[in-house]
Amino acid sequence: MTPATTVPSAMPALSGASGGTLPPLFTTAVTATAVLGCLAYLAAAARLRARGDAWPYGRDALFCAGGVVLVAGVAEPWGAAPPFTAHMLTHLCVGMVAPLLLVLGRPLTLTLRTAPVPVRRVLVALTRSRWAALPVLPPVAALLDFGGLWLLYRTPLLSVSHHNPWLNTAVHVHILLAGLAFSFGLLALDPVRHRPGFGLRAAVLLAAGTAHAVLAKSLYAAGPPGTSFGAADLHLASQVMYYGGDAVELALAAVVACRWYRAEGRALRRARRAGRPAPCGTTTAAVTRS
């Protein structure tokens, strides 16, 4: 962190009625959905274990942690944080950390194993459909997620959305859904129509990480158009976005890398059993490209 030049100037453009910047209806809806989702998840996992199936407790913990982060994000408990920094912390929770944790809990796999048969049929059809596969294709999901961020911070969208609760809600719903699609598509833990290769996933992660870092650093110098946040606020928010993004990128990369390691291990064991020399390089291009 640089020694921030404290310039408490320019009144912040956004300040909600009760200190928060999100519409109360949105906060309530997200909180209720998160709590119900976590309860449903725990109930389903318990049912699965009761009938003798294995389901690691770590997944329950990850999913519920995702719910907690989501609720914390929309509750905005940032108190004295300056407005843009508070907005950025919410964005980090709702759009990046919560989706990652929720996806790590493999909710779709759990649903497919516990839901009533008609529901399962619908879900299986959905996971096989071309249209449902499109938004979770890593490049498309990255474009939705990071393209959306560029729109939000480099057009007047942010300042306009703070005078229009519905637009504000739509922006946050988009941040959450795009974050979920990105984590879901990139990690590919749940069944999908076409599992992308490791090379594509590494390339997309690199491009997304770059786009995020560049946007974060550019916010240090110039805030979103139409807003007038203080310089100290912009500097702090920019660094929250930059380093917060790093942490999530590192976690995503670690999960993808572990999946690759396991896939290589399986290929190796298969080859040894078959008495062939160990294959090497089948999936190498995947991880080495960075």
């Binding site: 590494a202 992660l205 690199l206 997304a208 990480g209 770059t210 786009a211 995020h212 870092a213 560049v214 650093k217 790093d246 990128e249 590192l250 990369a253 670690a254 890398a257 572990c258 690759w260 390691y261 991880v287 080495t288 960075s290």
Partner: peptide
């Protein structure tokens, strides 16, 4: 940005 994002990936990929 490219090197910042890439270096984390390089570290993970190198170790794995």
């Amino acid at each position: 940005g490219l090197f910042h994002a890439g270096s984390w990936l390089a570290m993970v990929a190198g170790l794995v």
